[in-house]
Write a protein that binds this DNA or RNA. Structure first.
Lengths: 152, 152
DNA sequence: ATGGATGCAAATGATTTGCATGAAG
DNA sequence: CTTCATGCAAATCATTTGCATCCAT
């Protein structure tokens, strides 16, 4: 069985996992069951997830928590996920690839999360470039009380 | 010794501690040695501090780490300090009162911290108000490589 | 074949908590 | 004098690590 046939066969069975294979290959990282599975869980989530939320959603119930930690950290170092701090005790992770850069607003009461797509920070980053900084990134999160919570 | 004489006496000895007394009173929180001392340490710091940095700077070497945790959390709940996430393992705290709202840029290599005073987020907050959110706050941190680190 | 990934168990380390005592209002 | 803050010690809990085994390349 030659390479192209093999690839075709995989793609027929599961387009998404093929997508993840390309992603991991492009970062020179090995393609393994746990990695594909964690990518699937992250891709299917509407919101950024904590480590234990990810662990709770994986199908293979033998997957160790330590594996989730190690895998997500690997993804973080390879810019596959970003890390988000919502000022509670847990870090959250969100798939970066195939998504546009965006921020969030979190209701301080019900913890509902919505995306904020606008990004007006280019000017600020330009200012920091002029100050001598390079490779600038930023993190921005909003907090507030949503309209439903205000009614109560 | 009546109350006003006592107050005057304290003020003569230490203006700053008088300032802190007012602050704590205004939040209906008791004025204690550890609280005044931690406020002093935070006030004297140029940069946001971790819990253990604060603990290392207090003069009273008997002060327990647990006291620092409890005190800083109290300050956080009473909006006396804000909490800042620089994406390392420690949370950092910075005095809010008597300071203008500002953000930071952190060099990813040497971890140098500088303030970023500009705040152009009012438009975004207006947008979120129209979406139904109230009491909106935000957190914004920048990361980059500073000019000295780039030379190496 | 071989280096890297995983599961398991144990260690680590930051943060929290129970309790007795002491201080603040 | 009553409530609350503190020091001390112990507990908790998220995260990391060592190691033997297994798997991807």
């Amino acid at each position: 069985m030659n390479k192209s046939r093999n690839k075709l066969f995989s793609a027929e069975r599961n387009d998404v996992s093929e997508e993840f294979r390309f992603l991991l290959n492009s970062k020179s990282q090995r393609v393994t069951g746990p990695r594909l599975e964690i990518l699937r869980v992250l891709k299917e989530s509407r919101d950024p997830m904590t480590i234990s939320e990810i662990h709770g959603k994986v199908k293979n119930k033998n997957m160790d928590l330590a594996t989730v930690y190690r895998t997500v950290n690997l993804f973080y170092e390879n810019n596959i996920v970003c890390e988000i701090d919502f000022k509670d005790e847990f870090k959250r992770y969100e798939l970066l690839y195939d998504r546009n850069h965006h921020h969030h607003i979190v209701c301080r009461k019900c913890r509902k999360i919505e995306n904020v797509d606008t990004c007006i920070l280019n000017e600020l980053e330009k200012f920091l470039t002029e100050k001598g900084y390079s490779e600038i990134t930023h993190s921005l999160e909003f907090f507030g009380i949503c309209s439903e919570c205000r009614k109560n």
